[in-house]
């Protein structure tokens, strides 16, 4: 800034000019910093979707040398009228709606249990986290071995105590529950760690106050702990619900969608259409349908969560100062 300018007016105008210059510079810097990553993400999300759209409106079939024809909405029609689509959609939803609440329940139990340990809590927590660090493929074949009807340990133990074990992944009734069991085993630790973070965030003076007011443990849990955990449970639920649409690896290893189509969820059905039978047109249409379903599903869930967050009794007092700081930047 120039110091030779004597009048206050001149100082002010030169200051604002340099401020403007600085602002322009900052804007350019922001663009330079953001552009590579955004360009990369943009190209890689637009490009495959363009191919998907192309495939889904044509009779594209890999490995069959017939000329590709424009079929309009034909692929979409054949998907929506196919009972296999509806059965795979309902299997996906049933899977999510059974597995996720059970994960929340078991995860809550584990988090409460671990929170009661002052000594050794960290080491126990990290041991419980092991399943979610594993590759789902490894999880799949560990369970395949564990549940093996002849040389697996679980069936031997069950027979030992006089229970005749089910055929697990190879029986039509038990295949889906088996996959649910494996998913619960792998992902309950995730819910547990989220809820543990929630429990740790409750200040001890809250409990002291409750105690002074004569509330017993059960009352404290129901009226204080549970309400304060609700935002954490919501986050865990939403993340797990969205993730349960991705389940593929353990199906590939444990059941391959079978027996019959009893464990064929949307992901496996799409894979089977595309790379089992090379019907890329139909598989592309199914992918687009999933994309639309998921976009609306996610938007609906987030809108619900947001509305709840706006409630005055929000358990996140830190929100206001941080938002203010952010928008001032």
């Amino acid at each position: 800034m120039s110091t030779s300018a004597a009048t206050p007016n001149a100082v002010r105008s030169s200051r604002s000019a340099s401020q403007k210059r600085q602002q322009a510079q900052e804007k350019r810097a922001t663009l330079i910093l953001l552009a590579p990553a955004l360009l990369f993400l943009f190209l890689l999300s637009i490009w495959p979707v363009a191919y998907l759209l192309y495939a889904s409106f044509t009779s594209y079939q890999l490995a069959i040398p017939i000329p590709t024809e424009w079929v309009g909405l034909g692929n979409f029609e054949s998907i929506v009228t196919n009972p296999r689509f509806w059965s795979s959609l309902s299997i996906t939803l049933v899977f999510a709606l059974i597995a996720v609440p059970l994960q929340i329940l078991v995860g809550l139990g584990l988090a409460l249990l671990l929170n009661g340990y002052s000594r050794g809590r960290e080491i126990y927590t990290s041991l419980f986290l092991i399943p979610m660090m594993l590759a789902p493929i490894v999880v799949g074949f560990s369970w395949n071995l564990f549940l093996n009807p002849i040389y697996g340990p679980l069936n031997s133990v069950l027979r030992g105590v006089g229970i005749s074990p089910p055929a697990w992944a190879s029986s039509p009734e038990w295949a889906l529950p088996t996959l649910v069991l494996v998913d619960i085993w792998q992902w309950t630790p995730f819910v547990m760690i989220v809820l543990l973070a929630g429990l740790r965030s409750i200040p001890p003076r809250v409990f002291e106050a409750a105690k002074v007011d004569g509330s017993n443990r059960m009352q404290t849990f129901i009226h204080i702990v549970l309400p304060m955990l609700v935002p954490y449970m919501t986050v865990a639920f939403v993340l797990r619900f969205i993730d349960s649409f991705k389940v593929f690896d353990i199906i590939y290893i444990l059941t391959r969608g079978g027996p019959g189509t009893s464990t064929q969820n949307l992901a496996y059905y799409t894979y089977d259409l595309g790379f089992g039978r090379f019907e890329f047109g139909a598989a592309g249409a199914l992918s687009i349908i999933q994309l639309i379903l998921l976009t609306f599903g996610t938007m609906a869930i987030l809108a619900l969560v947001k509305r709840r967050d706006k409630a005055p009794a929000s358990a996140a007092p830190a929100a206001t100062p941080r938002l203010a700081e952010g928008s001032a930047a």
């Binding site: 490009w47 979707v49 191919y51 998907l52 649409f245 991705k246 992918s287 998921l294």
Partner: peptide, 12 residues
Amino acid sequence: PPIVPVIGFYLL
């Protein structure tokens, strides 16, 4: 879910 773009990626 990765299954959604995977066919597009395959063609690409």
